[in-house]
Nucleic acid binder design. Structure first.
Lengths: 232, 232
DNA sequence: CATTGTTTGTACAATATTTCACAATCTCTA
DNA sequence: TAGAGATTGTGAAATATTGTACAAACAATG
């Protein structure tokens, strides 16, 4: 074990993956899983798996592996995922609404309890099963709700003030989908999910040499049918 | 300069951020920017900025800094972002539709040219300004379109076969939003955007000790109004 | 219950990435 | 055009992360 220094962030990210892997393995009927089995399922090397787990204790039995159920429970507790977590979203536009309806969150025991916007034409409207709330009321409302996890799905220009308001409202960790940096007080954590950046990174790894035409070729369903006809 | 070894991935990710920073700086009227200025805007240390840039050449003038316009152009070329890039999406559900309408892509000169689904009740319907295409036709259609960037916005259980089809269709880089690992041949690059994982990582950093109640407090607009009345 | 075969946990080695510091280079002003 | 001030590019040091290998611990089997 190595409880001295806190686990590196990449380890935490992988633990989340192990947890998912374990839950799937359980559904598959597996009761025990070796680090080599986890490698097969996740692509993360068995040595890495063992080292990651060793940051938090000794979970396995030599010669056998890890008890799926037990390890899942213990990892869930470490990650604070052993009970439902409440989240809020700010921004009820295109992306915010999609996030509000994302079933992946629900399946992983996240519970969306509020969605805010500043646009009067949106406030009061329903998104999935929630009313869109007035962002001006966040401080008051969250004094009762106590949500600690916030997601920013607004345009970049208002992201900072949204983050400020979240922090004032008691939010402790923020997932920022807006393409801008937000500054928060020490103790509050921000992670950025920058969709454009992800695409841009991929572009760099695009094979060189094939200069793309600037004329786009957009094909509609009907045209598609034609092509199919032509080729069959 | 250091053209021997290829730039590390974290450097590539930051270059994308510098590029965004430069474009904003240009709009602000800046013609020149020092690495210290970039630090102020991005939060990335000036030394890191200089080292990152040094992987690709010498762009700055001692005593002055970097010419905004020129650096932006050169970085754009390095990142293959100096001309529009075509993308496709598979999965026209909740998330896929939101991605299709995400203005951030368009603003950064990405051009969505096709969205596919396998659900007959969706195929042919319109999402934003595109018809939803039958995924069965991807190989044929993309033979003409030549899209090299694909985004997977499907349930996990079909992600692998979608990735396989993309690769057969000529896609070279993949942005995978489904919560599962997809395996692709050498030479094809996959990046994962795992929304649930991001939330789970944040949970780990949640302050300890405050065990949340499992009873949710969801507040509707009307209740919200009441609270406001009470407190004002 | 001894022996063979697995698998863990971890020390150590190897890479990868970031930070630091400073000589070299350029600007700017008088 | 000389001197003061600013900023770059980059080695070298410091951290951080990953890979490797193996002794110790346990299972399983006959």
């Amino acid at each position: 074990m190595n409880t001295n220094k806190s686990a590196p962030e990449p380890t935490i990210a992988r633990i989340a993956l192990y947890l998912r892997c374990l839950r799937i393995a359980k559904q598959d009927g597996a009761t025990t899983l070796s680090s080599a089995d986890i490698e097969k399922r996740t692509g993360i090397s068995s040595g890495q798996v063992r080292k990651d787990l060793s940051f938090f204790g000794e979970f396995g039995k030599p010669g056998l592996g890890y008890a799926v159920d037990e390890l899942a429970q213990r990892l869930a507790r470490i990650m604070r995922l052993d009970h439902p977590q409440e989240i809020m979203i700010v921004g009820a536009g295109n992306l915010g609404s999609a996030l509000a309806g994302y079933t992946g969150f629900t399946e992983s025991d996240f519970h969306l309890v509020a969605i805010y916007d500043n646009n009067f034409s949106k406030i009061g409207r329903r998104v999935w099963d929630l009313d869109i709330l007035d962002i001006e009321q966040m401080e008051e409302l969250n004094a009762k709700m106590g949500v600690q996890i916030g997601m920013i799905a607004t345009p970049a220009r208002v992201a900072q003030e949204v983050a400020d308001r979240m922090v004032r409202s008691g939010v402790r960790v923020v997932l920022n989908f807006s393409p801008t940096r937000v500054v928060v007080p020490k103790g509050v954590i921000v992670r950025n999910v920058d969709l454009t950046q992800e695409l841009q990174i991929l572009c760099y790894y695009l094979p060189a040499g094939d200069q793309q035409e600037d004329a786009f070729t957009t094909i509609s369903s009907d045209a598609a049918k034609n092509i199919e006809d032509e080729t069959e």
